[in-house]
């Protein structure tokens, strides 16, 4: 059974379709890239997958997340899916963390919730040990200090690591990363990509990686879906889609990336 199976998804607001007839399949453990310019419907698709579209946006079609139909599902049913089946990492780690809550408590929250869902109460000691485990997992230094720090007291890269730790702490089957490196500087970007790839492989999670940045997607994904103005223009393994792009838009993306490489080469 596929982990996520989106079929003929259309998202409308008023008379306008923001996503049109979109289909996407993610198998357990697969790493899938979703690429497209801003406003192409990437993030909406991801939010629709867990039934969290902003009010006023109506999804049509079919979204099966771990075998459960998301469209039209009750809030109770969706809440059970969120975190456990799919967890999110967002673009801007500063705003994705509660500014007034210490890091340790923020990471503890999904852990405590997971234990509650599993119907067992975990002691404080046990939860703290798990918090440390996940912060170690994302290679954060000086964990004692970070657990007692507020988000504004640590660096952008560290904040994104915390956000990843929080997603991991849910133990999801699918990790949805929505432009997770866009707000970071280039060196930190490379580290976070490396970390995500390693974690996804080691934890056996599937990854839906959303980005507008072709080289970044090529680095982490095996399969890619190219979205433009809410429509899928190309879909397939990274190698074939980027190696021999068929659609004009994909060609343009690849050319732009290649032109950048050439410019770099000419400089040297």
């Amino acid at each position: 059974m596929s982990l996520l199976r989106i079929e003929n998804l259309t998202i409308r607001t008023g008379g306008q379709a923001l996503v049109k007839d979109m289909s996407l399949v993610i198998e357990p453990g697969a790493r899938v890239g979703l690429i497209g310019e801003s406003g192409s419907g990437k993030s909406l698709t991801a939010l629709a997958a867990i039934g969290l579209l902003p009010p006023g946006l109506k999804p049509e079609g079919s979204i099966l997340l771990d075998g459960v139909q998301v469209i039209g599902a009750s809030e109770e049913k969706l809440k059970a899916l969120r975190g456990r089946t799919a967890a999110f990492v967002f673009q801007e780690p500063l705003t994705a963390l509660d500014p007034l809550m210490k890091i340790g408590r923020q990471v503890a929250e999904p852990i405590a919730r997971r234990h509650r869902r599993d119907g067992r109460s975990a002691g404080r000691q046990e939860i703290v040990a798990e918090v440390r485990h996940y912060l170690e997992r994302v290679a954060l230094p000086d964990i004692d200090r970070i657990m007692n720090a507020y988000p504004f007291q640590i660096s952008g890269g560290q904040r994104q690591r915390v956000a990843i730790a929080m997603a991991l702490a849910c133990r999801p089957k699918l990790l949805i990363a929505d432009e997770p490196t866009t707000a970071l500087d280039v060196t930190t970007q490379a580290e976070i990509l490396e970390l995500l790839s390693t974690l996804v492989r080691e934890e056996g999670m599937a990854l839906l990686f959303i980005s507008h940045d072709l080289p970044v997607v090529a680095k982490v994904a095996e399969e890619v879906t190219v979205l433009r103005r809410g429509q899928v223009v190309e879909q397939g393994p990274v190698r074939s889609v980027f190696g021999s792009p068929q659609h004009e838009y994909t060609k343009m993306l690849v050319d732009a990336a290649a032109a950048f490489d050439r410019a770099l080469g000419a400089q040297q």
Binding site: K79, R82, F88, P99, A163
Partner: peptide, 26 residues
């Protein structure tokens, strides 16, 4: 409207937990 509320919801937080843990403290 903040991202951390969306983040909490994507992780499966319930509304009461969002009110008491995130909204009221903030």
């Amino acid at each position: 409207a903040m991202d951390y509320i969306t983040a909490a919801r994507t992780a499966g937080s319930s509304w009461p937990s969002i009110v008491f843990r995130h909204v009221l403290p903030n």
